[in-house]
């Protein structure tokens, strides 16, 4: 467990890393998630450092294995380790990632202040990914995974997940 201050990725490794997806949100590559913090070749081994979205996120082990497989396909040996600091934030999800989330039916995280208002049901600001209405309300602060909250759209009546802002 180490600390990786700045994201530091060898551009040549990006195409391989982009093949790996979050097992729980398969439309999102780990690059778009912003969980890859370091990727460089050293002594013919790809050294990859990823950071967990949440401490107990069970997807991390799977992502680690998937990274090793993706590199193996390119005949490269990879070593994956976990870094905790700085802690992951939803700000690291790329623009492309946010779009992919919305298309998949998950509302992308709002900024910190708006997020609080939404999660306390003070303001109707989370957009339903199905019908784009903001006539929505929070049903539960915890959704199908730790990183999401459960919402309901009062317009089209569909339930949906909202990716919580983590700062």
């Amino acid at each position: 467990m180490t600390i990786a201050l700045e994201q530091d990725i060898d551009p040549k490794l990006i195409p391989i890393l982009e093949e790996v997806h979050d097992p729980e949100i398969p439309v999102l590559s780990i690059m778009d998630m912003g969980v890859v913090r370091f990727a460089h070749m050293k002594d013919n081994i790809a050294q990859i450092k990823i950071t967990p979205t949440y401490s107990g996120c069970p997807a991390m082990d799977v992502m680690g294995d998937d990274i090793i497989h993706a590199f193996a396909k390119a005949n490269i040996k990879a070593k994956v380790s976990l870094v905790l600091s700085p802690a992951w934030t939803t700000d690291w999800i790329t623009h492309r990632g946010r779009k992919a989330l919305e298309e998949y039916g998950i509302a992308a995280p709002l900024n910190e202040e708006a997020d609080k208002e939404a999660l306390l049901n003070n303001k109707k600001i989370v957009k339903c990914p199905q019908c784009r209405s903001t006539n929505t309300k929070m049903v539960s602060q915890f959704g199908s995974t730790a990183c999401k909250a459960l919402f309901k759209c009062d317009e089209c009546l569909e339930p949906f997940d909202y990716f919580k802002c983590l700062k």
């Binding site: 949440y54 401490s55 905790l84 539960s140 602060q141 199908s144």
Partner: peptide, 20 residues
């Protein structure tokens, strides 16, 4: 269902921290 999921999500956070 909602509280069940919330409590187990919290369990997951706590066990994740424990592992670290």
């Amino acid at each position: 269902l909602e509280t069940d999921i919330a409590l187990t999500n919290m369990a997951l956070d706590l066990l994740g921290q424990t592992r670290s």
